[in-house]
Deep mutational scan, measured.
Amino acid sequence: MKVMIRKTATGHSAYVAKKDLEELIVEMENPALWGGKVTLANGWQLELPAMAADTPLPITVEARKL
């Protein structure tokens, strides 16, 4: 699914347009965010693609819901 990742004042957030859902990312498998699992505030887990740590945000990526 397409997910937009952006930086907020409190960390990172994910927006899933198909579900009209925006949630804070509360847990990251990798400190650089990319190439691992993230957990959203509502409990969803997404697998993000591997990208460079300095990838500019906001960005829309293809993520997989676990």
Rank of each mutant, 00 (worst) to 15 (best):
M1Q: 06
M1F: 14
M1K: 02
M1C: 14
K2W: 14
K2M: 15
K2D: 10
K2A: 11
K2P: 09
K2C: 13
K2L: 15
K2N: 10
V3K: 00
V3F: 03
V3L: 07
V3P: 00
V3S: 00
V3A: 01
V3D: 00
V3N: 02
M4H: 08
M4D: 08
M4R: 12
M4S: 12
M4W: 07
M4Y: 08
I5Y: 01
I5F: 04
I5G: 01
I5E: 01
I5A: 00
I5R: 00
I5S: 00
I5K: 00
I5Q: 00
I5D: 01
I5V: 07
I5M: 00
R6I: 11
R6N: 11
R6K: 14
R6A: 10
R6G: 06
R6S: 14
R6D: 07
K7F: 08
K7C: 08
K7D: 03
K7L: 10
K7R: 12
K7A: 10
K7S: 08
K7W: 10
T8Y: 08
T8Q: 07
T8R: 07
T8A: 09
A9P: 12
A9Y: 08
A9D: 11
A9I: 10
A9G: 11
A9Q: 11
A9V: 10
A9K: 12
A9S: 11
T10F: 13
T10Y: 12
T10L: 14
T10P: 03
T10S: 13
G11M: 03
G11W: 04
G11D: 00
G11Y: 06
G11E: 03
G11L: 05
G11A: 05
H12N: 04
H12T: 07
H12V: 09
H12S: 03
S13I: 12
S13A: 12
S13R: 08
S13M: 13
A14H: 04
A14R: 01
A14K: 01
A14V: 15
A14N: 01
Y15I: 10
Y15G: 02
Y15L: 10
Y15D: 01
V16S: 06
V16H: 05
V16E: 04
V16K: 00
V16Y: 14
V16C: 14
A17V: 14
A17P: 14
A17K: 10
A17D: 09
A17W: 15
K18W: 14
K18T: 14
K18L: 12
K18Q: 15
K18C: 15
K18S: 15
K18D: 15
K19Q: 15
K19E: 15
K19C: 15
K19T: 14
K19Y: 15
K19F: 15
K19W: 15
D20R: 11
D20P: 05
D20W: 07
D20Y: 09
D20Q: 12
D20L: 08
D20K: 12
D20N: 11
D20I: 07
L21Q: 11
L21T: 10
L21I: 14
L21M: 13
L21E: 06
E22A: 08
E22T: 11
E22N: 09
E22R: 07
E22Q: 08
E22V: 09
E23A: 14
E23Y: 15
E23H: 13
E23Q: 12
E23R: 05
E23G: 05
E23C: 13
L24H: 11
L24V: 13
L24G: 08
L24Y: 09
I25N: 02
I25C: 04
I25W: 00
V26T: 11
V26L: 08
V26S: 05
V26I: 12
V26D: 03
E27C: 12
E27D: 13
E27F: 13
E27V: 08
M28D: 00
M28F: 12
M28S: 13
M28V: 07
M28I: 09
E29A: 08
E29M: 06
E29N: 05
N30I: 06
N30F: 13
N30G: 05
N30T: 10
N30L: 09
P31C: 08
P31G: 11
P31N: 10
P31T: 10
P31K: 11
P31R: 07
A32E: 14
A32Y: 14
A32M: 13
A32Q: 14
A32K: 12
A32W: 15
A32D: 14
A32C: 09
L33A: 03
L33V: 07
L33T: 02
L33R: 03
W34P: 01
W34C: 03
W34I: 02
W34R: 02
W34K: 02
W34F: 09
G35Q: 06
G35W: 01
G35T: 02
G35L: 02
G35Y: 04
G35I: 03
G35V: 02
G36S: 05
G36F: 03
G36Y: 05
G36I: 03
G36N: 03
G36C: 05
G36P: 01
K37G: 05
K37R: 13
K37E: 03
K37I: 14
V38C: 03
V38L: 05
V38Q: 00
V38N: 00
V38Y: 04
V38T: 01
V38M: 05
T39C: 08
T39Y: 08
T39M: 09
T39A: 05
T39F: 07
T39W: 12
L40Y: 00
L40M: 05
L40P: 00
L40W: 04
L40K: 00
L40R: 00
L40S: 01
L40F: 03
L40D: 03
A41P: 02
A41T: 07
A41R: 07
A41L: 06
A41W: 04
A41Q: 09
A41N: 08
A41F: 05
A41I: 05
A41D: 03
N42L: 01
N42E: 04
N42K: 00
N42W: 04
N42I: 06
N42R: 00
N42A: 01
G43N: 04
G43R: 03
G43F: 04
G43H: 04
G43T: 01
W44N: 03
W44S: 00
Q45K: 12
Q45E: 13
Q45P: 02
L46T: 00
L46F: 14
L46G: 00
L46M: 08
L46V: 05
L46Y: 07
E47M: 14
E47C: 13
E47S: 10
E47W: 14
L48M: 08
L48R: 00
L48Q: 00
L48G: 01
L48H: 01
L48A: 03
L48F: 04
L48N: 01
L48D: 02
P49L: 05
P49F: 07
P49M: 05
P49N: 00
P49H: 05
P49R: 05
P49D: 02
A50W: 15
A50V: 12
A50I: 13
A50E: 13
A50P: 13
A50S: 11
A50H: 13
A50G: 09
M51F: 06
M51G: 03
M51A: 03
M51R: 06
M51E: 03
M51Q: 04
M51H: 02
A52I: 05
A52E: 13
A52V: 07
A52H: 10
A52F: 06
A52G: 09
A52D: 13
A52P: 15
A52S: 11
A52L: 08
A53G: 09
A53F: 10
A53S: 11
A53M: 10
A53P: 13
D54F: 06
D54S: 10
D54N: 11
D54I: 06
D54C: 06
D54V: 05
D54K: 07
T55C: 05
T55V: 07
T55I: 07
T55H: 05
T55D: 01
T55A: 06
T55W: 02
P56G: 08
P56D: 08
P56F: 07
P56H: 08
P56T: 13
P56A: 11
P56M: 11
P56V: 12
P56Q: 11
P56C: 07
P56K: 12
L57N: 02
L57I: 05
L57V: 05
L57K: 02
L57P: 01
L57H: 01
L57D: 04
P58S: 03
P58C: 07
P58W: 08
P58N: 04
P58Y: 06
P58T: 05
P58F: 07
I59K: 09
I59L: 10
I59A: 12
T60I: 13
T60A: 07
T60Y: 10
T60S: 09
T60D: 06
T60W: 15
T60R: 04
T60Q: 09
T60C: 11
V61F: 06
V61G: 02
V61R: 00
V61Q: 02
V61Y: 00
E62H: 12
E62A: 10
E62D: 10
E62Y: 15
E62I: 15
E62R: 11
A63R: 00
A63M: 06
A63T: 07
R64G: 05
R64K: 14
R64D: 05
R64H: 11
R64S: 09
R64C: 11
R64P: 04
R64Q: 13
R64M: 12
R64N: 10
K65Y: 15
K65Q: 14
K65S: 12
K65M: 15
K65C: 15
K65D: 12
K65P: 12
K65R: 12
K65E: 11
L66N: 06
L66A: 09
L66H: 07
L66D: 05
L66C: 11
L66G: 05
L66Y: 12
L66Q: 05
L66S: 08
